[in-house]
Design a protein around this nucleic acid. Structure first.
Lengths: 235, 235
DNA sequence: AGACTGTATTATGTTATACATAATAATTTC
DNA sequence: GAAATTATTATGTATAACATAATACAGTCT
């Protein structure tokens, strides 16, 4: 065997900690067919005993699973398998203050893509009541957006409602969760300065399309509506 | 005071555990301006001492932060603040086997929205090399997709490249991460049976548009290309 | 019988202590 | 002065003991 091969083999040794191993074992257990959501998993001491490690290690592994939202623990009852809440999890680790600038910008971009791409779901699922609600929101909207603070709240109200109409909880929660990011991106000089705000498709225009138009029309209108944001990203 | 009011007041007592409190304290510390990415945070024993709790509690709180990707720990060095990797975190908790059916469907929908909505980023950032790469991918694509397995691999290759072209790492990793979900959704009878596969815009057609068309054209073409998926969702 | 109360049990939550291990700093050796 | 050795330090692991809260069970009272 050549030296190269030897070193190659050597560096593939298992450097993971005990907790890592136990965590893997537990996850295997969780996704096995034997355990369904709501079922309990063995007690800490049993696991420690079976796996041949201390309760400390088991507890730390369980803590990780808890943090990931895979299990919930209660006294006496023990730990039970739960279906993980992705958005809730993201929310927990989403602190714009300590996030990479580039990632922040990319998340901002993702939002733009989502709002354009979800047009089909909006048009498929919108109800007359939704349209009425949208109209109520944009009713007393100032033609010229001079009050910046008001404008932001209004933006959130309007676009939030759109996410709601999409009938997709994951999307809706995604938006809720990313709001702080958007706010942060706006405030920090992360993007280019706002260009001259030309007149693009307004909220009222979007509502009009949602009521009478097609998904394709909504996509294009939304793209136009978001033009200022795109312009800031694309220089 | 009425009994109702009393009980209302009583149930607002702090039921959070010690670890919860310590975790909050630590997060406050992390997002404070004093600590930047790469900086170390106090040692476990110091923290235990200052906060007046045992080292075990501090360790468990730190374990949570580690799991969330907010910090990394090394022996001797201690714990250092890191910018959290959102997608990596999601990946860790993403087990289609134990996820709620509805959530799975919603994630699938989100993918569709993203692929349509990212057209602008693709058109803005695509290079001649990218186009060449795309052409190479679709070159020997069978006109009639008879080999299902091959088709899936091909789908991943092609659309993966599109995510790459979007120049958005978060998006790209999102796709990578959600692939198992798509696979799972396809295999499980979660969606309606595939309708008669009519002839829609092909990969080759998409490439053609990317090379010579506009963002708007790409959005519409992509929507068309994904029609089968939409049909399965919308019945 | 049925509702309330107290007690026992059990599994997680918390503390304390000791030692192992790996990464860094300090020291010695040549 | 560079390399090897040793010391130090902070995290990783193990063990034992007790606290706490949720549940089950029995007992009491009307």
């Amino acid at each position: 065997m050549s030296t190269l091969e030897i070193t190659k083999n050597l560096q593939s040794i298992d450097t993971s900690s005990l907790v890592d191993k136990v965590e893997r074992k537990l996850i295997e257990l969780l996704i096995s067919k034997d355990i369904k959501v709501g079922d309990s998993i063995p007690k800490e001491l049993e696991l420690a005993d079976v796996l041949g490690v201390s309760r400390t290690v088991v507890r730390e592994a369980l803590t990780r699973l808890k943090t990931l939202g895979l299990i919930e623990t209660k006294k006496k009852r023990g730990a039970v398998l739960t279906n993980p809440d992705l958005t809730g999890l993201l929310e927990k680790s989403l602190y714009p203050e300590i996030m990479d600038k580039n990632t922040l910008r990319e998340i901002f971009e993702m939002r733009l893509a989502l709002e354009i791409g979800m047009a089909d779901f909006i048009m498929e699922r919108v109800t007359p009541e939704d349209v009425a609600a949208l109209k109520a929101i944009v009713e007393d909207e100032p033609t010229v957006a001079d009050q910046h603070l008001f404008q932001i709240e209004q933006e959130i109200r309007f676009h939030g409602k759109l996410y709601e109409i999409s009938g997709n909880q994951v999307l809706k929660r995604f938006q809720q969760m990313l709001l702080p990011v958007f706010d942060y991106v706006h405030k920090s000089g992360l993007l280019k300065k706002m260009p001259k705000t030309k007149k693009f498709v307004s909220h009222k225009g979007l509502v009009e399309i949602i009521e009478n138009g097609s998904a394709e029309m909504l996509r294009n209108a939304m793209r136009n509506h978001l033009e200022n944001h795109f312009a800031r990203i694309f220089e």
